[in-house]
Design a protein around this nucleic acid. Sequence first.
DNA 1: CTGTTAGCGCATTCAA
DNA 2: TTGAATGCGCTAACAG
Lengths: 336, 336
Amino acid sequence: MIRNVTLAEVAREAGVSPSTVSRILNGTARVKDDKEQSVRRAIDRLGYRPNAFARSLATGASGSVGVLTQDIASPFYNDALSGIERGLMGSGYSPIIISGHWRTDEEEHAVELLLARRVEALIVLGGELPDDELRSLADRLPVAVLGRPLDLGSYGGASIALNNRQAARDLVTHLLDRGHRVIGHIMGLADQEDAQERLGGYREALESRGVAYVPSLVVQGDFREPSGLIGMQRLLAAHPDITAVFCANDQMAYGARLALYRLGIRVPEDVSLVGFDDLPGSCYTTPPLTSVRQPMEEMGQWLARFVLGRLLGEAVPPFEPKLELQLRESVASRRP
Amino acid sequence: MIRNVTLAEVAREAGVSPSTVSRILNGTARVKDDKEQSVRRAIDRLGYRPNAFARSLATGASGSVGVLTQDIASPFYNDALSGIERGLMGSGYSPIIISGHWRTDEEEHAVELLLARRVEALIVLGGELPDDELRSLADRLPVAVLGRPLDLGSYGGASIALNNRQAARDLVTHLLDRGHRVIGHIMGLADQEDAQERLGGYREALESRGVAYVPSLVVQGDFREPSGLIGMQRLLAAHPDITAVFCANDQMAYGARLALYRLGIRVPEDVSLVGFDDLPGSCYTTPPLTSVRQPMEEMGQWLARFVLGRLLGEAVPPFEPKLELQLRESVASRRP
DNA sequence: CTGTTAGCGCATTCAA
DNA sequence: TTGAATGCGCTAACAG
């Protein structure tokens, strides 16, 4: 609405040259105190705010790193976003966040936008962008990817992916240790790699204990609550003797929990339940849910540090995300 | 890493003038087909991407609207963010999101950053920014505020605030209707207006039914789960005869729920529980939680539309957010 | 220590 | 329909 004040106007108002004002703003060189004072006063008086665009244009540095997330309302990725925010804090860089909604076209558009805004680095949280595209991006700027087993090392990028299979195996092994033998699995979207890996871990755990894999003990879900509820109903219908269920994520476990509640089946006395992701709410469900925690926040922070490191030419110590089993009250030993 | 291709290079490669390329890019004027073709080819060949900064500098329009949220990981505001994203979609504007973490200094810094990035409008989600500051901002650009009862009308801004008091009154009246008389309240941060309003609604509901307000039935919380757990313990200690509890938000209700579970007190048979906000998870708690839904997503969408309207000089129909009571199984009639 | 000059990459006059 | 020239607001040499 109101035209913005420019540096030149400040200079005139203060009776100095534009460069002097610039120097004061950026601390590029020492300036006599009296001039500094009058410039600062002029800035206040005029309500001057530097134009980031002009600055970026002149310096060739945007001071921003692009973040491609999937859903700004996803509790899952948002922890990583917090971490990124924290990791960037105080670095002079700020994040520009865009959501791709797991749709390749939207993601590509988002990347275009970020590139147009001349982000100096890119952090990608999951998504469907083809590996090749990520690689060619990593060719142009520092790229860090979360949740995809992608080798970007030779391109100057980094990717951290979780060992979903291992974690799922640990979780199911825990159930086996507690004496469970009829263990159901509500799996995630079949075409998503995470879902496949978690299913794989489930199978491996069973096999390593010599428990037969029964296809009808696995039902399809879509990572959301309603599918957990339905999945649980189907499992109970097919296997009334089921004593434990491994849900491919916590959200589906919530749905499963509700299905059991509605049927008057107790957790964990009658059926034990485990999830995956350890959402913030999972220690406050009734009973608190056994799950496996992905250190999203730490991962986000590391991603930020990684790209900062590349930007500043510093080495960044590698990061070994640790999946931690969170053993809570939703699992009981099977009664003999 | 790799220097970016400029429009001038494209022009040279295509054998035309920079202005021609610009015209093609922006559709500012008709250009002969053959030139257009060769320019498009040059763009592809060189991998040219327009520099958003240079463009903004030249046009004076940034194409972005600033969004000040509080916590990028807050499920509460994130629904509004989704709405904003949706409301902006296809408008040519894109959001720049920064978190203020309910700290005035951080929020001010965030606003500085947004203003430096020359956002054309500002959307503020809650926060602690002084009203005056918001008003003076609304003086410079379109501003839309969520969750604060602030009159920005004369400044060309808009603010939508929820009638927290009314909703709280409805919720508590619902409990009274179900026969409850000893009703506790776990309140939010005492210095936050929402918390005060919800407490006010609680009192009003009681008084309108001639039920005495008992100070010891109100305990302090901070809007987070642990405080709900502790609050519930304290309420039970002071009032073993309590039959219902109104938590100032769902997160605290989750905590309260867990406290009851640990003590073997049943919900809703022994104690009824209600929350506030209707988080996505609240229909999947056991039992599902009675709460009041704030249409965050719709509000976000409206906020976006509002600032767009102001930007484009179009009128935007006013918005009347409706708080909807979500009656679920966490409330039972008091047994006679 | 400070002012002058010359771009940064693009859109947009104004002529042609 | 097109090109040349100018300026957006700022920083960074380069002189002084």
